[in-house]
């Protein structure tokens, strides 16, 4: 948090190195979230691009009320919603989905993890968007239910319900495969 504040301060003075550090710190996690929500790696990269460009453009007047991480995550989620709204997103078929890379250094393990990731994001794509968003925000973004509730402007019990029902459906979907 303090590191974020320091970097933000530098960024507001036009320090591109600070921009680079922030990007490198959050890019993979944000891309994972976008990919999990969209099940479309290419669209997810576009979302990541738009979020960072917008963030850089407004950082001079940005006054964060929470963490930088949550701000960026909220921006990703909002952009993803825009994508769905704009294009009435047609989910890509699993076979057409681009490769989902793995952080593993072992090529063999990478293939396994990649396949698992494809199956998971494919299953997530079959959930209602509110349940999918809740699960991804909690598990991939590391947000607490309280934080998700605050971000979405809904009661925490609703968030917990969406999470629980979403996991149940996911379990069923994955077992059927």
């Amino acid at each position: 948090m303090l590191e974020d504040k320091r970097l933000l301060g530098q960024l507001k003075r036009g320090d591109k190195e600070a921009l680079c550090q922030i990007y490198m710190e959050y890019k993979d996690n944000l891309l994972t979230i976008a990919t999990s929500l969209l099940h479309d790696p290419s669209a997810a990269e576009d979302v990541l691009h738009d979020v960072f460009v917008s963030f850089a453009a407004v950082v001079g007047s940005l006054r964060l009320r929470g963490s930088l991480r949550n701000y960026l995550v909220a921006s990703i989620v909002n952009r993803v919603r825009d994508v769905y709204r704009r294009k009435k997103h047609h989910l890509v078929e699993l076979d057409e989905a681009g490769p989902v890379a793995s952080g593993s250094e072992d090529p063999g393990q990478a293939a396994v993890v990649g396949e698992e990731a494809r199956r998971l994001t494919g299953a997530l794509a079959q959930l209602p968007s509110d349940q999918r968003e809740t699960i991804v925000l909690h598990l991939n973004a590391g947000m607490k239910f309280k934080e998700i509730a605050q971000m979405q402007g809904i009661p925490i019990s609703t968030v917990q319900g969406r999470y629980r029902y979403g996991l149940g459906k996911l379990r069923t979907i994955l077992k059927e495969r």
Partner: peptide, 10 residues
């Protein structure tokens, strides 16, 4: 499994 998902940028 979901928490372990990790996608990297090119």
């Amino acid at each position: 499994s979901i928490a372990r998902l990790h996608v990297t940028t090119r």
